[in-house]
Nucleic acid binder design. Structure first.
Lengths: 130, 130
DNA sequence: TTGGATGCAAACGCTTTGCATAATT
DNA sequence: AATTATGCAAAGCGTTTGCATCCAA
């Protein structure tokens, strides 16, 4: 029924590898650039299509950021949030999570999920600029 | 120097009024529809231009939502967060805020701001559907 | 009259889709 | 041979901009 693919899996593998190597949520364009190191002819449409499939398959998770295009990270990590550096635009994982989120929910509302995004400067950028 | 305008301020006033009446963060399209009740010829470009100006003037605040187009609310409110209803797509204010956010910040990172978005079903939608 | 604001349409950036081709089973 | 994936280009969607016109002072 399903045997290990070869050529056609090239792009999916390259895309997966690009995200894995980044070790932080990355966007389609960045993934394209990185994956083109392995598959030069790779097109952006294929990146989007594979991202969607990888997310549907539970291999990747979409990181939706306020006011910015979505990024992608490996799924299977425990619950965490993100820090968006305003200087270099990179996004980092934040392991902890305040457990008190449910307390914020207005009466009568049903809470299903939550996102927390921190903004500021990452370690690399904290010294430079202002 | 500045006298009370008339015709030309119509659109800005209509836009402001639309947001005020909504009493929750609303998007450009919804603002356009509502404001066209006062100014039928109003165009979407004018809405965007006025929104930008109103934000720059500190009258409005942009509510950036993960994976969704930005909405606008009256500025001047105290610090709060938002609840995004997955059923009706409306966004509501959440007054409280866990004060422990700073604790999440990784070492060496400089925290400047944070966003918290809750997802689920609002009071109106909590009963319907699933 | 002079500058700013408006409406329309074109332009943009990001994402999705149509379609013919190429790779896989 | 049948199916699925790819690349390219075109289409979509939300937002911005160019430009001629209109309004206000």
């Amino acid at each position: 029924m399903k045997s290990p693919a070869r050529r056609k899996t090239q792009q999916r593998a390259a895309i997966h590898k690009a995200i894995e190597r980044a070790d932080r949520p990355v966007g389609p364009q960045e993934i394209l650039s990185a994956a083109q190191a392995d598959v030069p002819a790779l097109g952006i449409a294929t990146v989007y299509r594979n991202l969607r499939r990888l997310v549907a398959d539970g291999i990747l998770r979409v990181v939706e950021l306020p006011g910015a295009p979505s990024r992608y990270e490996l799924a299977g990590k425990e619950h965490h949030h993100h820090f968006h550096c305003r200087a270099c635009d990179r996004v980092f994982e934040v392991d902890d999570c305040p457990g008190s989120i449910a307390d914020l929910t207005p009466t009568g509302f049903r809470l299903e999920a939550h996102d927390i995004t921190l903004y500021g400067r990452c370690r690399d950028c904290a010294g430079e600029g202002s």
